[in-house]
Nucleic acid binder design. Structure first.
Lengths: 178, 178
DNA sequence: ACCTGAACACCGTTCAAGT
DNA sequence: ACCTGAACACCGTTCAAGT
């Protein structure tokens, strides 16, 4: 007689996602996830291969959500503001996806590629098709570095961080526009 | 009768530093460090408070070395190339210092501030004193994001990464120059 | 004064035994 | 077919006992 299912993969990923924001990557333990979904740790292995795979699933869920939001942006400033807002909303997930350490499980290539289409579209509009890739990389590298530093509290020399963000957007858009 | 010292704090930090590059942050275990310096794990606690403090010491050693190299740069391109070369030489240490995750031990504030003086000096020369801080943040955010993405293999859409780097420097320097 | 084995509280993961 | 306790190999850290 089969036991009824006491949890689902979606519930497990959601619990891991919440634990990630609350306690950081190291806080995402199989025991912690198990408690949240109401089973014992060994039961999780019926639905997910291991902890690395679970982290990868959280990374992919994060990128899919981010991609959906970026795709809705019509211009560079909106796109970059959306990106930054996502980082502030889910700082740990942002770091997991954008600046994973060595050994950190990483999202599938296709999921990652999809996240680039919005910035490529907008960069092509500003810089032209020839320089679209380089312009997209300039904008992406800047925004990713800026948001990472902001989340890490790395802007330590005073000044207005919002002003630095606006300064960056204005000068970058100007620089890449033909 | 006292036992002769079998290791030193410097040797412990150096072993941790090497393990970091070889096996990543998770690979820096007290047991692993102990084996490298020729003692048992409990003995390490005579010289360093705990693992977090050891990681912090590695972060500070990394920043001091990086600061020394950046201070020697005379112009923006040299500074940025030096920064990128350091990232490629010590990728795990670069990530530890520039994009630490939540809960990762972080260098002392004074050590971090010292690493900013070179970029501030050069930014002031290009953008003027009024915009020096914003310009420094633009350059730093871009370079940090670019190098992080490069180390993570995040440039996945083909194209020439060196060309994207040169494109970035040229357009940024142009953008912030009065 | 430094070093060590033993111990404790955690991890991730496996597996036989339950329902 | 799913769930669990028990077990194993790891961690970081403490501490009494050795020299």
């Amino acid at each position: 007689m089969p036991t009824p299912d006491r949890t689902t993969l979606d519930a497990i990923v959601a619990a891991a996602r919440d634990l990630l924001e609350e306690d950081g990557l190291a806080g995402v333990t199989m025991q912690g996830v198990a408690v949240r979904v109401g089973v014992r740790a060994p039961s999780l292995y019926k639905r997910v291969e291991n902890r690395d795979r679970l982290i990868q699933l959280v990374a992919e869920e994060t990128l899919l959500e981010l991609t959906a939001r970026l795709d809705a942006a019509a211009d560079a400033r909106t796109l970059l503001d959306t990106y930054r807002a996502f980082g502030k909303e889910r700082p740990a997930a942002f770091r997991l996806v954008m600046t994973p350490g060595a050994g950190t499980p990483v999202a599938d290539t296709a999921v990652q590629a999809a996240a680039s289409t919005a910035i490529l579209r907008i960069s092509a509009g500003l810089a032209g098709e020839t320089d679209a890739l380089e312009a997209a990389r300039l904008l992406t590298a800047w925004a990713t570095g800026f948001i990472s530093m902001e989340l890490n509290g790395a802007f330590r020399l005073g000044g207005d961080i919002d002003r630095a963000w606006d300064y960056g957007i204005a000068h970058l858009v100007d620089a890449i526009t033909r």
